[in-house]
């Protein structure tokens, strides 16, 4: 028995050694740095160096592909950063990542994809990449994420095993770190459909997932409030065809957030545009679509910022 256990441990030690060798062999590859998820590093640098109070947009790629932060900054007079990268990082990571960085009088605009209210949409490739950049978030995400990390723990090992032979997959220019400006917005994008937007599937509502997501956002609001900042909710923009099909679900999210007393600006139905303003995803706006959304956001945020300034003075 003792012999068996020792031999098994020795075998696993060899595998750890193989892991280490693969890790060393894969170091120095810059493709990881060029990946658009690595823009999180730049976004955090900007967040740290900005003048306060700040306007911070928090969400997924609907923000990165959906607003013009420079325009918002000019119009509102607040230093602005767009922290949106990818919804597949999951709600826990996205909120945990920003929580410790909030300071007094910041205005945090939550624009969260609806998928967060349906299920845990964290995907191994995105989340593991982001955890590689910000490993401290493993602790910040809390014990509820431990099963996910363990269940998906093979993914980073898989990447280690593949890397020396295949390299990291290169993303196209659209999804590269170079295509994201200093405020966190996409710089250039196709101005017409790349692919046909698929017809939306009618969603099976998931009460428990919605409850979980809402309670996590409530916790975020409480933590942010302790630091003297304010949170408001703006909905991500969707094609009008989606609103028609899944309108009831979006409304249920709206009601659930309303019941928790969130400051919500607008409704899901208002946060929509014609289908032709979107391209490779239901959440990714064309330049024209982003301009319309930005204009609307400015109009929605100005009174909020004004009232915050009045309260401060």
């Amino acid at each position: 028995m003792r012999n068996f256990i020792l031999r098994t441990l020795l075998f696993f030690a060899i595998q750890v050694l193989v892991c280490a060798v693969l890790y060393i062999a894969g170091r120095g590859d810059e493709s990881e740095d060029r990946h658009y998820l690595s823009s999180l590093i730049d976004k955090h640098e900007r967040l740290d160096s900005m003048s306060r109070p700040r306007l911070i947009f928090v969400g997924g790629s609907s923000l990165m592909f959906g607003i013009n932060s420079e325009h918002i900054e000019k119009a509102t007079g607040r230093a602005t950063v767009n922290m949106g990268v990818n919804a597949a990082l999951g709600l826990d990571f996205i909120l945990s990542d920003i929580e410790p960085k909030i300071s007094s009088d910041d205005l945090v605009v939550l624009s969260l994809e609806y998928g967060f209210f349906l299920k845990d949409i964290a995907q191994p490739p995105s989340l593991w990449h982001a955890l590689g950049i910000a490993p401290h978030n493993i602790l910040a995400m809390g014990p509820s994420k431990i099963p996910w990390i363990m269940d998906n723990g093979l993914y980073p090992i898989r990447q280690l095993a593949r890397h020396p032979f295949t390299g990291r997959p290169e993303m196209n220019d659209l999804y590269s770190r170079n295509n994201i400006n200093e405020r966190g917005d996409i710089v250039s994008r196709p101005e017409r459909y790349n692919i046909e937007i698929k017809a939306p599937v009618s969603a099976e509502e998931s009460n428990s997932a919605r409850r979980q997501a809402v309670s996590r956002i409530v916790l975020f609001r409480e933590r942010v409030a302790k630091q003297g900042a304010k949170v408001i909710v703006l909905y991500p923009y969707l094609p009008k065809s989606h609103i028609k099909v899944r309108g009831d679900f979006y409304k249920s999210v709206h009601l659930a957030l309303g019941e928790e007393g969130f400051s919500i600006v607008g409704t899901p139905a208002e946060a929509s545009l014609k289908d032709e303003y979107f391209y490779d995803s239901n959440y990714h706006l064309t330049t024209e679509g982003a301009a319309i959304r930005t204009k609307r956001i400015v109009a929605q945020l100005k009174p909020v910022i004004r009232s915050m300034s009045e309260q401060t003075h």
Binding site: Q15, V18, Q123, P124, P125, L154, Y155, R158, A161
Partner: peptide, 11 residues
Amino acid sequence: LWLGIAVQPVR
């Protein structure tokens, strides 16, 4: 073991 780990799909 490593062949399995390397060629497994993302999920």
